[in-house]
Design a binder for these strands. Sequence first.
RNA 1: CGGGGUGUAGCGCAGCCUGGUAGCGCACUUGACUGGGGGUCAAGUGGUCGUCAGUUCAAAUCUGGCCACCCCGACCA
Length: 486
Amino acid sequence: MSKEKNNFSVTPRSQDFNEWYNDVVIKADLADDSPVRGAMVVKPYGWALWENVQKVLDAEFKATNHEALAFPMFIPMSFLAKEAQHVEGFAPELAVVTHAGGHLLEEPLVVRPTSETIIGHMWSKWVRSYRDLPLLHYQWGSVVRWELRPRKFLRTTEFYWHEGHTAHASSEEAVEETLKLLEIYKNFARNYAAMPVISGVKTPSERFAGAVDTYSIEAMMGDGKALQAGTSHYLGQNFAKAFEVNFQAKDQSQQFAHTTSWAISTRIIGGIIMTHGDDKGLVLPPMLAPFQVVIVPIFKSDNQDLMLAEARKLALELRALGVRVKVDERDGVSNGFKYNDWEMRGVPFRLELGPRDLEAGNVVLVSRLSGEKAIVARGEAVAGMTAQLEGFQAELLARATTFRDERIKTADTWDEFTRLLEQGFFVRAFHCGDADSEKQIKELTKASTRCIPLTGEVYGDLEEGVCIHTGKPSAYGKRVIFARAY
RNA sequence: CGGGGUGUAGCGCAGCCUGGUAGCGCACUUGACUGGGGGUCAAGUGGUCGUCAGUUCAAAUCUGGCCACCCCGACCA
């Protein structure tokens, strides 16, 4: 805890990024610690933000013909063991129910860490013919992974997400699905969260347990560290074979299905905080902010009713244009307190409406980014708000993109490579593809391979060279992105 | 699991060395004043001092065990 910290401010970002992050989560009122270690309570403001994430993504899934459903949170222990890689990957972090109803259970139940297994089991009952495919399923819910070091939103014991699971008749179709979701995630990150992500494929050692290929969107946080903000997996026939998801093809042969799974979790909220926040607290992208505009009515006891009524009227005018507005009607809290409070919570715009403004037909408009006050004609402020919000959203993305691009460097020598990583950069370098080498690099530099950017995407240019670590010819036909990560 | 640290009011801390029945700031409650950048004054509420045992006439304070939490590392959406 820093000494300068008082009840109002957060630890400066430049002084201690982790402390800053924790302060913002608490003071912006997003979440609180629960009595269970590593399991946080998402408070109303944080949940409202998550609900907006849900609304956008849910609409995307439905627009691409996916169907929502719900699987149970308990999975028979033996299911996990059916896919060898999967159980190896998840065994250390499982929460297991051994007793229920006052008795020792015949077979322990794991609290789902992810649902491939139980979904595979059910699919095997539902799929008989190629005509039953594809199955395009997803569910909103929570999962439990007993992480050793929890951090609010970024890594909690229980976290909320959606998990998509699809089954297809051919590998081509399943790969197409995997990439389609990656694209949806990338666009969501860019267009809603204002996070410029790099989409790519993981190296074999960074794959999801049981996957043939894992794709991810990788974002850069304000301290230069990477955050895997979403993943999409092509699972091949691994789970289909383990759970006997097979069908009779048109040519009458028996085939195993090709499956995929994909997810974005509440971690994305941590990403939004660490991408846009500053020393005054949170900065929220308008597309996801619970409140895009807060109105602070300026009043004294003798004109309180009038000013509150006027503020509500102003709010209605904005709501009619589809703007999410909050009127801060609190009494007994000074105006200055309200300004700082809403700045901490990252509301993009504030409108102050006082007696002077009312008389002159004006409002005071303040942007969370510039902090400057502008006196604007009331009608103009209302009519122009949609454009203001669009401008704010665009500025956040532009700012984050500039920051990212300045902090991605190319290295061709080991010295340069380690020096850049030490300074907190993303580093593009060639790698030979050897898993042991990757592991050693991680031990030496604390950096891991984040992804091999897709061809046609940013940083995905085709190039050949020699491995930064072993000097052997590079694998993958392009540079790999290395970074320290959350 | 390894290293470091902390447990005293809702939060942040002092008191412990040198035992004598608990205090400060913020928050909270009430009232008055105030009101365009984190208000002022006054009066209040709130704690079996993490836990168990020991020493003592007497333990927040001394001794020992245990527990919990936080930070750093390994693991990870």
